[in-house]
């Protein structure tokens, strides 16, 4: 089963993990992304492209399903304003075995970072607001799944 959600509100990690513990799954892996609070950051705002975002996440989940033997995939990505320490993204996978769950989880977050239409803007205590630049290391991380 694939669950995709793009939402403003936060999410309950315990409930999401429990949902992945379905019949037959022997392994659950997850990734949680948080707002880093370094450099005087006061707020992080996530913008997305409504209409395209959910389709892009669905396609990533389909790709993961085709590549590994998975029972469940959950992708939750928040939009709007968040403060340091808040959760931004949850990726969870359930599989009969740990390797598939761990690898698929890593694949999903790596590809999400370079393919899903989200943009981060950082706001600082001194009033600056800066659009986050993409990182070369993120491109490298996504590219390793193409080899």
């Amino acid at each position: 089963m694939i669950r995709i959600s793009v939402q403003r509100e936060g999410f309950d990690i315990g409930a999401e993990l429990a949902r992945l513990e379905v019949d037959g799954a022997g392994a659950v892996a997850s990734f949680i992304g948080l707002v880093r609070g370094n450099g005087g950051l006061t707020e992080l705002t996530l913008e997305h492209y409504p209409g395209m975002t959910e389709a892009a996440l669905q396609r990533l989940a389909n790709d993961a399903n085709a590549r590994w033997s998975l029972d469940c995939i959950t992708i939750i990505h928040r939009i709007g304003a968040m403060t340091p320490g808040e959760r931004i993204v949850f990726v969870g996978t359930a599989s009969p075995h740990r390797a598939a769950a761990l690898e698929a989880c890593s694949f999903l977050i790596d590809r999400l970072k370079t393919e899903a239409p989200f943009w981060k803007q950082e706001s600082f205590a001194d009033g600056r607001a800066i659009w986050v630049e993409p990182r070369e290391s993120d491109n490298d991380a996504a590219a390793r799944w193409c080899e």
Binding site: G33, L46, H48, Y49, M52, H77, I88, V89, I109, L112, K113, T114, E115, A116, P117, F118, W119, K120, W131, V132, E133, P134, D138
Partner: peptide
């Protein structure tokens, strides 16, 4: 058609 910067989610 949409124009935007390279994506930075996750």
């Amino acid at each position: 058609i949409a124009f935007f910067p390279p994506v930075t989610g996750g």
